[in-house]
Computed example of a mutant assay.
Amino acid sequence: MSRLNTDQLSLGYGSRHIVKELNLKVPDGLITALVGANGSGKSTILKSLARILNPIKGGVYLDGKLIHRQPTKEVAKHLAILPQNPTSPEGLTVRELVSFGRYPHQKGFGNMSKDDNEMIEWAMKATGMSMFSSRAVDELSGGQRQRAWIAMALAQGTEVLLLDEPTTFLDMAHQMEVMTLLEKLNKEQKRTIIMVVHDLNHASRYAQHLVALKDGTVLYEGQPEVVMTSQMLRDVFNIDADVIPDPRSGAPLCLPYGLAENPVEDIPEISADREVIFPNHRDNRIEATA
């Protein structure tokens, strides 16, 4: 079953089309990972699912209704998005940041209700951020900061979370910290999570559904065990790789060992007299500076 889906969705910026006639159904209650090379349309699709980017053609549907025709506040009660590298005003505390998640549920500029405060406290507790409630967001570590933003998304009380590269620029420990939190939210609260992921091994380990994109088109889709193959890696990423079961989790583990097609041109030679000699252009010599 799918509450969120696209129908003949075409997206782009100006005259540049990135996604054409996409038909995608997001499985309810699962973690779905969008994977693909840079420029494949992953983030563009996520923005459209979140109603940030309007379609050129077709549409995004939430519970059978066109999402781009629904009021912003109404959509925000069902969908929360964490964009790439979010920033907050200097000095903003964790609690203040998380409280922004209650905006869709407030009328005008009224004070926080009892329900609002309870949701804020719950979101901070669920993400392990209660102890940092009064700490400034810009004083936190990378993993803590990302958890604070996820807490804000949770405070919205939505059934669906959209995350654009949630582990970007985080070290390995903080990456696992964030991914483990998302896995916990999915398993314990049945949250539907759609995330753009660059690390293929994170995608296959933590997601139950993979969508592999190339040039705005879905080439492969399904469970990691079905999608994560050497052929998919060649077709989508232009790499040669072995795929083996992870010795601990059993999830497919990608071990790249080369490019399927080497796009790098021959490196020019440098002669003893410091001249650059370009392959196939032996008569075209450029003096190299020391």
Rank of each mutant, 00 (worst) to 15 (best):
I286F: 11
M228Q: 05
L97V: 11
P279E: 01
A136M: 06
G64R: 00
A155K: 03
A155I: 13
I150T: 09
A33S: 15
A260E: 10
V264Q: 11
K57S: 15
M112N: 11
A251V: 06
G222M: 02
S133H: 11
L97C: 08
P71C: 03
M152F: 09
A290Y: 10
L34W: 01
V19T: 09
S204H: 02
D242M: 14
I267R: 00
I120T: 04
N186V: 02
A173W: 05
E121A: 10
S204D: 07
G128F: 04
P104F: 03
N201H: 12
K77T: 12
L255S: 04
D63T: 00
T289L: 15
S133R: 13
R234V: 04
Y257R: 04
S88W: 00
F169R: 10
Q189I: 00
P104K: 04
S43L: 12
K214Y: 05
G58M: 03
L79W: 00
T44S: 15
A148L: 11
N262Y: 08
M124C: 06
A290L: 11
R205C: 03
Q70P: 09
R248Q: 14
P224M: 02
D235N: 14
Q70F: 10
E177C: 03
Q144M: 01
L255N: 08
K190M: 13
N38L: 10
K47Y: 13
P252R: 03
G58N: 10
S40W: 09
E139Q: 15
L4S: 04
G91M: 03
P27C: 05
S15R: 15
Q223T: 08
A272K: 13
I286Y: 03
G142P: 05
Y220S: 06
G216Q: 04
F132T: 02
D235E: 14
P71F: 02
D273S: 12
Y206V: 07
A76L: 05
G110S: 11
N85Q: 14
V19C: 06
P252T: 08
P86K: 02
K20R: 14
I244V: 14
P71M: 05
V276L: 14
N117V: 06
P224W: 06
M119A: 15
E265G: 12
M131S: 11
H209N: 10
T93R: 08
L62I: 10
S230A: 15
P86C: 09
T168V: 14
L30A: 13
P86E: 08
P89N: 01
G110L: 07
M119N: 09
A153E: 05
Q106M: 12
M179W: 02
R69V: 07
T87Q: 07
K107R: 14
G39Q: 05
F100G: 01
I45C: 07
M195P: 02
A76P: 07
S134I: 00
T93D: 02
L161I: 04
Q223R: 14
N54Q: 12
H105I: 02
S113I: 09
Y61T: 01
K65V: 09
R16P: 00
E269H: 12
S88G: 01
L200I: 06
R102Q: 00
